[in-house]
Lab assay of single mutants.
Amino acid sequence: GKELVLALYDYQEKSPREVTMKKGDILTLLNSTNKDWWKVEVNDRQGFVPAAYVKKL
């Protein structure tokens, strides 16, 4: 099944490779191999968020 993460904080994208999320959002985790930036999918968009801003559910 898909792995989900919870947004712990708001995050505003700073580049086209990133995505914006709001605290409390549930996101689909696509890739967590990089310890600093995790790739997630939110609202049919894929991009990176800081790993410290999310936690695995």
Rank of each mutant, 00 (worst) to 15 (best):
D10L: 02
A51S: 11
F48Y: 15
K23H: 05
M21P: 00
I26L: 09
Y11H: 04
V49L: 02
E18T: 08
Y11M: 01
V49Q: 00
L6T: 08
Y53P: 01
Y9A: 13
W38P: 01
V49M: 01
A52I: 12
A51E: 03
L29F: 03
P16T: 11
L27R: 02
R17A: 13
V40L: 04
G47D: 01
V19P: 01
W38M: 04
I26Q: 05
S32W: 11
L4Q: 11
D10W: 04
N34E: 10
F48W: 15
V49I: 08
I26G: 01
K14W: 04
V40P: 00
T28Q: 11
V42T: 14
L29C: 07
P50R: 04
K23D: 02
V54Y: 01
W37E: 04
E13T: 09
I26M: 07
F48H: 05
W38K: 01
L4P: 04
T20C: 06
Y11R: 02
W38C: 04
G24E: 02
L6V: 14
N31W: 07
R17C: 13
E41G: 08
Q46E: 11
K23E: 07
T20A: 07
N43A: 12
V19A: 05
V40F: 00
A52M: 11
K56I: 15
Q46L: 08
V5E: 00
A7H: 01
D44W: 08
L30D: 01
L57F: 09
Q46Y: 08
T33H: 12
N43V: 11
V42Q: 14
P16Y: 10
A51L: 02
E13D: 05
Y11D: 00
Y9T: 08
I26T: 06
S32V: 07
D25H: 06
Y9G: 06
K35W: 08
N31E: 15
Q46V: 15
V5D: 00
L4D: 04
D44K: 11
Q46T: 13
I26S: 03
N43W: 10
E13V: 06
L4A: 07
K55D: 07
E13L: 07
Q12Y: 15
K23I: 06
T33E: 15
E18H: 07
K55L: 13
E3H: 12
V49T: 02
G24Q: 02
E41H: 07
T20R: 06
K2H: 14
K56W: 08
R17F: 14
P50S: 02
V40R: 00
V49A: 03
E41V: 10
M21G: 00
N43H: 14
D25F: 05
V54S: 01
A51Y: 02
A52L: 10
V40N: 00
V40G: 00
S15K: 07
F48R: 03
T33D: 15
V54G: 02
V40M: 02
G1Q: 14
G47R: 02
S32C: 11
L8Q: 05
V5S: 03
N43T: 09
K39T: 08
L30R: 03
Y11C: 01
L8N: 02
K55G: 08
A7D: 00
R17K: 12
P16I: 10
K14M: 12
Y11S: 01
K39W: 15
K56E: 07
Q46I: 15
Y11E: 00
W37S: 03
P16K: 11
V42L: 15
I26V: 12
D36N: 14
G24A: 03
N31F: 06
L8I: 11
D10T: 07
K39P: 01
Q12S: 12
T20L: 02
T28Y: 13
K22M: 10
T28K: 12
S32T: 09
I26K: 06
A51I: 03
D44F: 09
D44P: 06
K22F: 11
F48C: 11
V42P: 01
K55V: 15
E13Q: 13
K22W: 09
P16S: 12
V19S: 03
K22C: 10
V5Y: 09
D25W: 12
T33M: 11
L27M: 14
K22D: 04
E41R: 10
K23G: 05
G24L: 03
G24F: 05
A7M: 02
R17S: 14
K39F: 15
Q12E: 14
K14H: 09
V40C: 05
V40E: 00
L8F: 04
E3L: 11
S32K: 07
I26R: 05
W37Y: 07
K2N: 11
K14I: 07
W38D: 00
G47A: 04
N43R: 13
V19G: 02
Y9D: 07
I26W: 05
D44L: 09
D44H: 12
D44I: 06
L4M: 12
D44R: 09
E41I: 09
D10K: 03
L57D: 04
K56N: 07
A52S: 15
D25R: 02
G24T: 02
N31M: 08
E3K: 10
Q12C: 11
V19M: 13
M21I: 15
L6H: 05
E41A: 12
A52F: 09
Y11N: 00
V42M: 15
K39E: 15
P50V: 02
K14P: 04
L29I: 04
V42F: 15
E13W: 05
L57G: 04
T33R: 10
L29G: 00
Q12G: 08
K39A: 08
K14Y: 05
N43S: 11
E13Y: 05
S32P: 06
L4W: 14
T20W: 04
S32A: 13
D25S: 07
L29A: 02
Y9R: 15
V42S: 14
Y11F: 08
V42H: 15
E3Y: 11
G47F: 08
A51D: 01
G1K: 14
E3C: 14
K55I: 15
D10R: 03
L6C: 09
G1S: 15
K56F: 10
D10M: 04
S15Y: 06
D10H: 06
K35F: 08
Y9I: 10
L30E: 03
T20Q: 05
K39Y: 15
A7L: 02
P50H: 02
L6E: 12
T20H: 05
W37M: 05
Q46W: 08
V40A: 02
K56Q: 08
L27E: 00
V40S: 00
Q12K: 13
P50T: 01
V5A: 12
N31K: 07
I26Y: 06
T33L: 11
K22I: 09
G1L: 14
T28V: 15
V40K: 00
T33S: 15
W38Q: 01
T28R: 11
D36H: 15
M21D: 01
Q46P: 06
G24H: 05
L6F: 08
A52W: 09
S32Y: 07
G1C: 13
T33Q: 13
T20G: 08
S15L: 09
R17E: 14
T28E: 13
V19K: 02
L8T: 03
G47H: 02
R45S: 06
Y53N: 05
T20P: 05
V19D: 01
L57P: 04
N34H: 13
S15N: 13
A52P: 08
A51C: 07
Y9H: 12
D44T: 11
V54K: 01
N31T: 08
E18P: 05
L8H: 03
K39V: 14
F48I: 07
K55F: 11
D25M: 14
V49R: 01
V5T: 03
Q46K: 09
G47L: 05
M21L: 09
D25G: 04
D36E: 11
G1W: 14
K56V: 11
Y53S: 10
F48V: 07
K14R: 12
N31H: 07
K23V: 07
K55Y: 11
Y11T: 01
D10Q: 03
L27P: 00
G47Q: 02
R17V: 12
V42A: 14
Y53G: 06
E13F: 06
K55M: 15
L4V: 09
K22P: 00
L8G: 02
A51R: 12
N31C: 10
S15P: 05
T33K: 10
S32N: 09
E41Y: 07
V49C: 03
K14A: 13
